[in-house]
Design a protein around this nucleic acid. Structure first.
Lengths: 209, 209
DNA sequence: GAACTATACGGAGGCTGCCTCCGGTTCTGC
DNA sequence: GCAGAACCGGAGGCAGCCTCCGTATAGTTC
């Protein structure tokens, strides 16, 4: 907001970081060096100050001019994405660590890990949330990774009858994302709330009332 | 963030809007007029542009200098609070509209109304979320109103055995707030997710799976 | 209704951050 | 070692935040 992220994003569809993805031409040595330093500086800055860390400060930390920063990452979201995309993808791949657990445990544990991880990266969530369930191509990679990892877990749990059938993965993600966004709560708080929320997935309107 | 809301807030404990609350001395006529115009302009601006509407713009809309704005509302949160506190309190009082419903319905309906209302005031949530579960005196009034209205509803439901006993109101609020923050989702989406989340409150680990 | 003073106004100005532009520098291939 | 493509960096224009203080005015008193 204020930076009108949507206007610019359409024509850069999936431009994640052109140098690393479509390796039409490798970066020049100095460019590669600066690129890496920027990423490192950005990771530190975002961790410390959240997603509105000053880009000028990041450039300074990286020992680089702002111009250079903007050339590598045309806007804040590009930078954010570059910083986190790999980590998120790795996290998502970790879903298979739970393959031999019961379908419910696998689902719950993965979300647990997810929330845990994301708790340390407020910057990521702040920005990513704005793209969940939208057509924005920014953060698409994270978005896709999450669906690829999580949807099968949910479907398995539904097939096993431990999760109600009337639930869509997108809604679950919304729920978990919401919980993830809770501020001013400790890790334990968040885990407790998450558990509570996930119980909503199990509830089958049975008796209990 | 970036505006360091916490540093300044401690010494202004509950200064909501000194003129209206502790009426030691009534505002001068011109001051009162400007105050109202600022509130009106702010409400419009926050609705249109979210919580980071420009304060200078708000002053301009109100036909007033920035200095005046800052005198009445030393910072953005004070203004936000002044704009919304009354509405939130009214909303919270509406909890008693559900007094003759079953304890579960009362709880669910109130949260429904809550989420509905808040959905139209993103600015409010953005900022309010940062204070839930914290000791920040800002937005204390909203915070208090929510607890006063909601906690009895939850307790009644717990007493009736339709809500699990191991649930604290603060966690429920965290859950609902999280759901409320979901972006990029329609009203229906949010309502569906809320219902799902609330079902977690009912789930008693009974059978079902 | 004039004079006085507490109260309030308003905007210039200092600061930070965003992003662009382009003259200068450095790398790379030959 | 040279040409030119690729890249650098920071000045500069703009916007928003907030403060400070000279000026204006409502309210009061006589």
């Amino acid at each position: 907001m204020g930076r009108s992220p949507d206007t610019a994003s359409a024509e850069r569809a999936g431009s994640v970081d052109r140098a690393e993805r479509d390796c039409a031409r490798p970066l020049r040595a100095d460019a590669k060096r600066n690129h890496d330093q920027l990423l490192t500086a950005a990771r530190a800055a975002f961790t410390e100050r959240g997603s509105d860390a000053s880009l000028e400060d990041i450039a300074r930390r990286a020992g680089v001019g702002v111009g250079t920063l903007y050339r590598h990452f045309p806007n804040r979201q590009d930078l954010l994405e570059a910083v986190y995309v790999e980590e998120v993808e790795a996290l998502c791949r970790s879903a298979k660590d739970f393959a031999d657990e019961s379908s419910w445990d696998a689902l719950a544990h993965w979300f647990d890990r997810f929330v845990d991880y994301v708790a340390t990266k407020r910057a990521l969530v702040d920005e990513m949330m704005t793209t969940i369930g939208r057509e924005a191509p920014v953060f698409r990679a994270c978005h896709d990774a999450i669906f690829t990892a999580g949807e099968p877990l949910l479907e398995r749990a539904k097939a096993d009858g431990v999760v109600r059938a009337d639930v869509e993965f997108i809604d679950v993600i919304r729920l978990v994302s919401g919980v993830t966004m809770i501020k001013g709560a400790s890790g334990d708080d968040v885990r407790r709330v998450l558990a509570m929320a996930l119980d909503g997935l199990r509830y089958q309107g049975s008796d209990a009332g």
